[in-house]
Design a protein around this nucleic acid. Structure first.
Lengths: 156, 156
DNA sequence: GGTGAAAGTTAACGGAG
DNA sequence: CTCCGTTAACTTTCACC
């Protein structure tokens, strides 16, 4: 692992370790070590370094929201009044649990957000009573995801 | 845990287990059990049921792409020719490692995709030489994410 | 960079209330 | 659903190369 500025370069062994854990965070370190052909302690050390370098942010269980009844995903372009303080709008968005992502973006919108709702009725409720209720939100454009084909992390 | 159609309803204990593991997939089952005040075997059984119900999809290490030099995220609205077979376009998108998400959406675009690039130059290259090169892609609209404030999973 | 061993935890299973 | 006990496997740290 080589540090260049605030970036790092990782070697093939780091990549093998990361690939295994990005695929299944509970893969035992020892089994990774055996696959690669080095000792568990070595894998452990490398992981510590990758964490120190902040490359590894954490680990998560991934759940399927559909099983809990969340079946409608949508992207919403949000127009904010110029005068408004955007940070307060973002703070209010953060209070809405259905909001999964929020980005400041270039282009027409101020924000692009991704939300997850149970159904279209739920989506409409969030739009009309939660998003539109936020001060500074003047208009929104909604794009419902009919089907997601790709969902992955960057390849290492 | 109650099964209703293909959906399930989970109780407070399931939620505590899921919250712990969604937050850190490597949390030992025994420590979760101690926190809740039940036995490790009980947590183990519940996890098996949640997996059987397909609520738990898997677990992942989350990495920070910026540390590897991927600093530009963008959303791209893709217009596909009506005549084109969309599946083949999606298949070609899948071959582009920079594409993190792809959705069929309602609205003007056929597809909305999320891509992750090293910088704007890299983004332009992907746009002009990879995305536009796909048969059926007539036009694209790009929104660069200047800043992401929210990134999370559904709350359980 | 890497190793191997030791100590302490944990996972996973079966049996039983 | 819970608890307990057992064994095998794993994590973590250490001195050392």
């Amino acid at each position: 692992m080589k540090v260049i500025n605030e970036q790092i370069e990782i070697d093939g062994i780091d990549k093998q370790i990361l690939r295994a854990l990005m695929n299944d965070a509970r893969t035992p370190i020892l089994s990774i070590a055996r696959t690669i052909g080095i000792s568990g302690a070595a894998v452990h050390q490398r992981l510590r370094k990758l964490e120190d370098a902040k490359l590894i942010v954490g680990s998560k269980f991934v759940i399927n929201p559909k099983i809990l009844g969340y079946k409608t995903m949508a992207f919403i372009g949000v127009y904010l009044d110029k005068a408004m303080r955007n940070p307060s709008a973002v703070k209010e968005l953060q209070e809405i649990p259905e909001v999964m992502e929020s980005h400041y973006t270039t282009g027409n919108w101020s924000l692009l957000i991704k939300i997850l709702c149970k159904d279209n009725e739920h989506l409409m409720h969030i739009l009309n009573h939660k998003i539109q209720a936020i001060k500074g939100v003047s208009r929104t454009e909604t794009f419902i995801s009919l089907n997601q084909q790709i969902d992955r992390q960057i390849k290492v």
